[in-house]
Structures are given as C-alpha cells and as structure tokens.
Design a protein around this nucleic acid. Structure first.
Length: 216
DNA sequence: CGGCCGATCAGCT
DNA sequence: GCTGATCGGCCGA
C-alpha cells in the first residue's frame, strides 16, 4: 500500500466504507496467498455513534486499537465464537472504523474452505458460503485477536489491503445489521455493498432451494 | 463477583 | 423465521 493510499485512510468512516468496495483484502499464511474482493462494509463513526464500540468515548482493553492510527486492524471476538474485522480510519484517537462484512473470494479458495470447515453432511462449502458475513470471512482467512492492531499499511502481520482490479459495480446502501438497540443510529444508512453481488451477506445463497427476496 | 448480552452463524421449521 | 450455541467483556453491586 502506497503512502498516498495510507493517507487516504485518515478519512471519515462513512467515506472510506464505500471506497473500500472493490478493493482486495489479502492474507498470507504459511506462504500461501488468500484474497477476496471487498463487497460489503459498514461504517462506525466513533464516540457519537451509539452502535459503535467507542460510543461516548468508551475505551477498554478490548477496543483500544480503535483509538490507534488509521490503517490498523480492529479485530474483536463476539457471541462467544466469532471474530469480526474492522479497518481503523479517521484521525488517530477518533475511534472510527469500517467493519468488513463480506468478500468475494478470488485466491486461495481451497485454504478458505478448509478453514471454514465442512458444510452440512460434509459437503464442501459453496464459494458464496465462504466469506459472506463478518464472522465467516474472519474464519476463512484465519483472522483472530492475534491480528488486533496489525498494521494493514505494511502488511507485516500477513494481512493487508490492495487496490481493486477494475470496476467495483453499483454501490447499494442500507441500515447496518444487528444494531437495533442503537436508537436513531440503527436506521442511519451506513452499510454499503455491491449491488447484486452473490457474496453479500444475508442472501441465503448458501442454502440452495431456499426462497429469497427478489433481487434487483 | 455475578449477571447480562452481543457489529453472528447454522440448523431446523 | 426462529433459536440455541457459547464465552469474553463490561457494568453494577
């Protein structure tokens, strides 16, 4: 990642979130390269944002990396079993971040499949079941708390972001997921995704034969 | 120190 | 669509 790109991470989360769409999240494990196109993100706006872990300036051992330099990762553990990854952005100390919610996997799919484990009946998982959710993509890329605070601009920890290759597609926008408790912030449209992309979360695409809302 | 709950997922109905 | 899994973090006492 170049110095210019690094500088661009110092922008507000609601500007960075759509800009990350189409870019690549890359992981190197044991010499192997795993990568996916970022197709879904959510912006979290720091102290003012009731849905943010940094709401009202909350700062604990768990979320301290949110207050670090733009361009580092904030990885947290939730629901007793899942990890989620954010890109810290804005000015240092602002505690803004962008949650990566889904990827379209393009490199290292076999490694991802192994990390995700077998699907129902031991059947290998479909491509769109690998990274179509914030917990899933962390499992597929073996991202856990050991990568909390990792510098994504140097990639030294084996995790970084690269420019995309070509058009990202039409960007859709909606309220964020799973933040119903956040008052008016719950309805604020801070979720961004690539319209029509099969790897966006919550499509039920991993369940063939299942009815789903008509897409457009 | 106890209790509650979550930026989720998968499996069943 | 609904719910159990599963446990660390956080808050209140």
């Amino acid at each position: 990642m170049t110095a210019v790109e690094r500088e661009r991470l110092a922008i507000a989360a609601d500007l960075l979130a759509p800009r990350l769409l189409g870019m690549l999240l890359v992981r190197r494990i044991a010499g192997k390269r795993l990568a996916g196109i970022i197709v879904e993100t959510e912006a979290y706006l720091g102290a003012v944002d009731r849905a943010s872990h940094a709401f009202a300036g909350r700062r604990t051992a768990r979320n301290q990396s949110m207050y670090g330099r733009p361009g580092i990762a904030y990885v947290y553990f939730t629901y007793g079993m899942h990890h989620c990854m954010n890109v810290v952005c804005g000015r240092e100390g602002e505690a803004s971040a962008v949650l990566l919610r889904a990827l379209e996997p393009i490199e290292g799919l076999e490694v991802m499949r192994r990390a995700r484990g077998p699907g129902r009946g031991g059947v290998p998982r479909a491509d769109q079941e690998l990274c179509s959710g914030p917990g899933k993509l962390c499992q597929a890329l073996s991202i856990d708390r050991s990568l909390d605070g990792a510098d994504l601009t140097t990639g030294k920890a084996g995790l970084w972001i690269e420019p995309g290759r070509g058009e990202a597609g039409v960007v859709g926008r909606s309220a964020r997921v799973g933040v119903d408790y956040a008052g008016e912030w719950a309805a604020t449209p801070l979720r961004f995704f690539i319209e029509g992309n099969a790897h966006v979360s919550g499509k039920g695409g991993a369940r063939p034969g299942r009815k789903r809302a008509g897409g457009g």
